[in-house]
Design a protein around this nucleic acid. Structure first.
Length: 109
DNA sequence: GCCATGGCTAGTA
DNA sequence: GCCATGGCTAGTA
């Protein structure tokens, strides 16, 4: 596994239950802000193998990005179970549920 | 070549 | 709705 992929996996695994991150946010935390599609690819192909909480990643509008019915319903079900509200338009309030990753930034903490 | 994005524009209402 | 973006897995040879 490549370093960037490794970091993406770690970031995703660090999202706490009941919170979500966007694809771009995960990419940014992993060190490559424009690699959102790469995050998609990793989620798509590595979720099962590495037991990723794939359901905690949504698009920048706070929407469930998956189109395929079964997975989509599953994602909604798990998020709801974790206490994440999904409104009637299928949206999640990112202000409220976005996970922030601890920065360990000694300069600013 | 893939991909479950994201940001911006055109065009409708 | 269009299209630039980007890192690499899966799978073949």
């Amino acid at each position: 596994m490549q370093p960037f992929t490794q970091r993406v996996v770690e970031v995703i695994r660090a999202i706490p239950p009941g919170r979500v991150m966007t694809y771009g946010q995960v990419a940014g935390e992993a060190g490559s802000p424009r690699a959102a599609r790469q995050v998609v690819r990793i989620l798509h192909s590595m979720s099962a193998k590495y037991e990723l909480p794939w359901h905690r990643v949504v698009n920048v509008k706070g929407e469930i990005a998956i189109q395929e019915d079964e997975s989509r319903f599953l994602q909604i079900a798990i998020l709801t179970e974790e206490g994440v509200d999904i409104d009637s338009n299928g949206r999640i309030d990112l202000e409220k549920y976005r996970a922030s990753v601890p920065h360990f930034d000694t300069k600013y903490n």
